[in-house]
Design a protein around this nucleic acid. Structure first.
Ligand SMILES: [Mn+2]
Ligand SMILES: [Mn+2]
Ligand SMILES: [Mn+2]
Ligand SMILES: [Mn+2]
Lengths: 219, 219
DNA sequence: ATATATTTTTAGTCTTGTCTAAAAATATAT
DNA sequence: ATATATTTTTAGACAAGACTAAAAATATAT
């Protein structure tokens, strides 16, 4: 039995350690979870006791195979619920995260499998993030940051790095969503801002923005 | 803010007190919740502090207006989720309760309202129990126990009093579900068992069974 | 009315998960 | 290489929610 709190720590380690292989620091986890380092140390010990994490004092923590699967299962649930909310329940992509944080802890194998089928086995969530399968495998899709694209190139928005409400609302305002075509018109050397063409409208975006949008080369 | 545990106590008091008006005893709550009387006393005090319950030492507890609304909201969520599970996610009526016990605690106004709409504003859950509206009002529908029906009368199954997995599976086995027509063929004076006609098959059911099936007069 | 039984509350303990403050280990800079 | 800064762990406390055992209140029976 994995508690709700343990699931949240597993998820944090999973995300910080690029799917859980790399060792992550106590402080990094504390920051991600908005908690204190001492609380993290306590929980890490519990996870290690349960064989969900590998832990060496002062050396950081990584997930075991079992821990990685448990974390991936939480992420799978989180993202499937987000799809349900957007596809069936009229949520917009900036409203789903908070509710999914709660729903991801519901325990029922059947529920999550039926949900998967009901949604027609989606491969990505509303933010373009991949949905792990039952075994925790995720389809690795190559995508780059918009900031990496050079002048005159065209690309398509396939995801966001920051999925905070504020950023998603900013994108909405400028009519950028998953699938939107973007052409880089020019780049400013000075502050690395860029002018892009979205639906035949030119807008200027900061480096912060272009650094948080994932794109793929236009096909 | 009402905690998950508080919600469970509110719900128990709500159900025991016939929607929350009557005072219920500490022991009754403890039994319903499979916990100890001393734990109940502790929680009752918290609910009273939060103005969710009226409590006089040794005199039992009842819900305040606020507590009643909170309880009804939990019941509303529980039953709406049960409808989703059965109508959209291929759960049978004996599989939904456990999962709904978890889902009923998800906090999101929008979610529950969208769910309601998505399900087309159902009035009853898969066990024939009424779904409270946003203000906690439930549509009172007259229904009687099958045990009350007299010989030669026909009726329609509209609900179950016991909605345990075991009982629901028993009903499945005998092809009794919501909407099933039942005709009382004969009653046994001795043990109050009865022979009934279900889809032209005669079966004999015990008093325990007839006491847990709600019916309405055949129209 | 008094004794007995039952119900309810209190007192004290435990577990989970959190926190602050202090100590220990590790990393960095000169 | 040593002093300083940063990170991590430990120690001790706290709140929520549960439990056991004992005390207090209420109900029941003669
Ligand atoms: Mn999310
Ligand atoms: Mn997402
Ligand atoms: Mn139920
Ligand atoms: Mn039900």
């Amino acid at each position: 039995m994995v508690t709700l709190s343990e699931e949240n720590y597993l998820k944090a380690i999973y995300h910080l350690g690029k799917q859980g292989s790399v060792a992550v620091s106590t402080n990094a986890i504390a920051e991600q979870m908005e908690t204190k380092a001492s609380s993290v140390t306590d929980m890490i010990k519990k996870l290690a006791d349960k064989n969900l994490a590998n832990y060496i004092k002062y050396q950081g923590v990584s997930l075991t195979k079992e821990g990685r699967l448990a974390a991936a299962s939480v992420v799978r649930k989180h993202r499937l619920w987000e799809v349900l909310l957007v596809e069936k329940l009229n949520f917009s992509w900036d409203e789903v995260h908070e509710v999914a944080e709660q729903l991801e802890h519901i325990k029922s194998e059947k529920l999550i499998n039926e949900l998967d089928a009901f949604l027609n086995y989606p491969e990505e969530d509303p933010h373009g993030d991949p949905i792990p399968d039952k075994d925790g495998n995720i389809k690795k899709v190559e995508k780059i940051l918009l900031s990496q694209v050079s002048e005159n190139q065209s690309c398509i928005c396939v995801g966001v790095k920051d999925s905070s409400t504020d950023f998603l609302k900013y994108l909405d305002k400028h009519h950028i969503s998953l699938g939107t075509s973007i052409k880089i018109i020019s780049k400013e050397k000075f502050d690395e801002s860029m002018t892009i063409d979205v639906n035949n409208t030119l807008i200027n975006i900061s480096k912060t923005v272009s650094n948080n949008i994932y794109v793929k080369k236009a096909s």
